[in-house]
């Protein structure tokens, strides 16, 4: 992959220029789907965009010293990491990529959640600290399953290159892995059964409690970009290989949309679980499937 294609992927498609409007679109789909499930009409189409613009025009409290600097830095770091993760997705056929880009993608997907933990603690609000502690416990719980699922897909195909993975013919193991990733996504996106890090009203807004104005706008944007990256990962793994570029892009968008809809409906249909129930769910109920997936992947690898 040369510099031009890398920049084009990062800045145009599927990077910033594509991902930012789709981040707002997915945020709207989430809110609209929840509203429809509750028998409401829901927000107008432009709502996340208007929220973003409005937040850019608000004041922020004055915070001095290193703590204030860090608080301003975390949301920017989260946005850039999430945008980079979207840019790595191999949406178009023969779009390049390099050996090991799957590992980089996983690392970049993890950065926003790390930033949220750090942001909550550096805000020094008691609610922020509770939210950060919950986020840390949650990410330890779901990441074991999430990483095992992806490693099992990669190990069975002998590669950590996303494009090669996406092009290989689908197997049973890959669908098992996709199912495991789907189980982890509500926790990764802080959706309802596992929404306890930012449990609205319960601990104010968790790690975001002290954020205001443009910084909060950046958090909203990074949340939207996380939506695009996480659902896009599922879409690239689940989509069949198509050599037509526009059809591949269209399929990517359609599959991401389906995943967003699925997750939103789940979020509207469930209530928030307590932290111990959540951790028990991931360690007791889903870990066994992840272990099964990775052991069968290793078995297949030694047999071939």
């Amino acid at each position: 992959m040369n510099l031009t294609t890398a920049l084009a992927r990062l800045l145009v498609f599927p990077g910033v220029l594509f991902a930012v409007p789709f981040a707002w679109f997915f945020l709207w789909v989430e809110r609209k789907a929840v509203a429809r499930m509750q028998g409401r009409i829901g927000p107008p189409f432009m709502q996340p965009f208007l929220d973003f613009i409005k937040l850019l025009g608000k004041d922020t409290p004055v915070r001095g010293g290193a703590g204030g600097l860090l608080m301003r830095a975390w949301p920017l770091l989260a946005v850039s990491a999430a945008a980079g993760a979207v840019g790595l997705l191999p949406v178009l056929p023969s779009s390049g990529g390099f050996e090991g880009d799957l590992i980089l993608l996983l690392a970049l997907l993890e950065v926003p959640s790390m930033c949220i933990i750090a942001a909550g603690f550096s805000s020094r609000s008691i609610f922020g600290e509770i939210g950060s502690a919950r986020e840390a416990v949650l990410s330890v719980a779901y990441n074991v399953v999430f990483l095992l699922a992806i490693v099992s897909i990669a190990a069975s195909q002998h590669t950590f290159r996303l494009e090669t993975l996406a092009q290989l013919p689908p197997s049973f193991l890959r669908y098992l892995g996709i199912a495991a990733i789907l189980v982890c996504l509500p926790a990764k996106l802080h959706l309802n059964p596992f929404s306890l890090p930012n449990a609205e009203q319960e601990i104010y807004s968790g790690p975001m409690t002290e954020y205001a104005g443009p910084e909060l706008a950046m958090w909203e944007l990074s949340h939207g970009l996380e939506w695009v990256a996480a659902t896009g990962l599922v879409a690239t793994l689940a989509a069949p290989h198509i050599s037509l570029a526009w059809l591949a892009a269209l399929l990517f968008v359609a599959l991401s949309f389906v995943v967003v809809l699925l997750l939103s409906v789940l979020a509207a249909a469930t209530a928030r679980l307590a932290i111990d129930t959540t951790v028990r769910f991931y360690w007791q109920c889903t870990l066994i499937f992840a272990v099964l997936a990775i052991s069968s992947a290793l078995f297949m690898r030694f047999r071939s």
Binding site: R40, I41, P43, P61, E200, Y204, S205, T209, E210, L216
Partner: peptide, 13 residues
């Protein structure tokens, strides 16, 4: 929510 109203948990927002 049709008017864009969102009940926020934190007064900062």
């Amino acid at each position: 929510e049709q008017l864009g109203v969102r009940l926020e948990g934190s007064p900062r927002h």
